[in-house]
Amino acid sequence: MTERTLVQAVNRGLFEAMQADPDVVLLGEDIGVNGGVFRATEGLAQQFGTDRVVDTPLSETGIVGTAIGMALYGLKPVAEIQFLDFIYPAFDQIVSELAKFRYRSGGQYPCHVVIRTPYGGGIKGGLYHSQSSEAYFAHTPGLKVIVPSTPADAKGLLLTAIQDEDPVLFLEPKRIYRSVTGEVPDGDHRVPFGVARLVREGTDASVFAYGAMIPPTVDAAETLAGEGISVEVIDLRSLVPLDEAAVVASVEKTGRAVVVHEAPRTCGFGAEISALLAERAFYSLKAPIARVTGFDTPFPYALENVYLPDAARIAHAIRSTVRSG
């Protein structure tokens, strides 16, 4: 075990994956000598050479398109998109190509690319360095969508992603890159996809969150514990594949559900969780499902603290849910 920040755990995961397998190559903007704008690839170019840590021209469709070609040929490319907000030039390659290669070739051409990208707000990044657009990708058949919230999971899920057989979008909560520290297992530590993490057990309400929304959700749960409300917090961490059994079982136990994400509300991932619970846990529900989300606006620069769900807003929603039934 070694104490690491979340971004250090990502770096360590990349280091170990590259050391273990010469087919693992990294590509992206400013990831080589500069070590990435968030330093996630710090030291890797020096360690493994610039032909394995490839600084690319400034083109996201170029990064993902060439990563696809590498994967078809047999390498294990890990592409970095500098900010999730800049992924859209590669949307066609991700949605039309990467996600569909195995399918459209009848299984002849698996296409295993990992795309790592920092997402989310809270760093004064404005409209174009703050978005949380995981729902677009979770809506695309053929893509796995993973969001760690702890250093141990960042490494463990990343190593699983790199050894997976399918394309993975790996969303890194940049707001807590350095603010969250934790023990990270050394060596080949892998966390399976499709298994939610029970952060905190509780009996009165279940709160489902992921990524950078975990710390304020835990804060809210602690506040409410002082008020006699017992909150169960579940870190989804794997949106696709989703641990549906854990989501349903928790609500069958508590009878109340709150979903938290920083993405806009309409068609956000919370809508999927809400629908799942309406379909499969309806008779266990004692109160309407609540969503605590970002707003249906572009991401505001000066007022991001108003836009983003925080512990107070999350606690308020849980409290209202518990009181309503």
């Binding site: 190559v25 032909d51 394995r52 490839v54 469709t61 170029g62 993902v64 398109g65 060439t66 990563a67 696809i68 070609g69 590498m70 994967a71 078809l72 040929y73 047999g74 390498l75 490319p77 066609d92 390659q93 039309s96 190509e97």
Partner: peptide, 15 residues
């Protein structure tokens, strides 16, 4: 879309 992919496969072959 196949154009960048062809380039990527060539990069892999180079490697």
């Amino acid at each position: 879309t196949q154009i960048t992919q062809a380039v990527g496969a060539a990069m892999a072959a180079q490697r």
